[in-house]
Amino acid sequence: MVNEQSDARVHRTVHEAEADAPADVVYRLIADTSRWPLYLPPNVQVEQLETTGDTERLRMWATANGQVKSWTSRRVLDPAARRVEFRQEVPAAPVESVGGTWIVTDLGADRSLLTLLHDFTVAGDRAEDVEWVERAIDTNSRAELGNLSTLAAGWARLEERVVIFEDSVHVDGPAERVYEFLHRADLWPQRLPHVDRLELTEDEPGVQIMTMGTRTADGSVHTTESVRVCFPEDLRIVYKQTATPALMSAHTGCWTVRPAAGGGLTVTSRHSVVLREEAIEQALGAQADLARARRHVREALGRNSGATLEVAKRFAESAALAR
Results as ranks from 00 to 15, higher is better:
A283T: 14
I209C: 03
P245C: 06
V221I: 09
G253L: 10
V229R: 13
V273H: 08
P245K: 05
T214Q: 13
Q282Y: 12
D196I: 00
G264P: 02
H251R: 09
A283N: 13
G219P: 01
W255C: 14
Q208T: 12
R197W: 07
T223Y: 14
M248E: 12
S226T: 14
L247S: 10
S272I: 09
M248L: 06
E277M: 00
G219E: 10
S249G: 15
A286Q: 08
Q241I: 02
D203G: 09
A288Q: 01
S220Y: 00
V274F: 10
V207P: 06
L200Q: 15
M210F: 09
P259L: 02
A217Y: 05
R236S: 08
Q208E: 07
T252I: 15
P259S: 04
R276F: 07
L284P: 01
G264V: 05
C230L: 14
A293K: 11
L247I: 15
A260N: 02
T242S: 03
A286R: 09
T224S: 15
V238N: 11
V257C: 10
G262V: 02
L290S: 08
M248S: 15
A250Q: 10
G263E: 02
T242Y: 01
G213M: 03
A279G: 02
P245Y: 00
I237S: 07
P205F: 08
T268H: 15
Q208R: 12
A288W: 00
E233I: 04
G285S: 05
G262N: 05
E225N: 11
H296Y: 12
T211N: 05
A286D: 09
T244K: 11
V227N: 07
A291Y: 05
G285F: 00
S272L: 14
E281C: 02
D234M: 09
D196R: 08
T224F: 08
R197M: 04
R270E: 10
A288Y: 03
A217H: 08
V274N: 09
V227H: 05
V257F: 14
T242M: 06
F231N: 07
T242N: 07
R295P: 02
A293G: 07
A279W: 01
E202L: 03
T211K: 13
T256E: 10
S226H: 14
R270F: 05
S269L: 04
A293V: 04
A283K: 02
T214V: 13
E199R: 06
Q282G: 12
G285L: 01
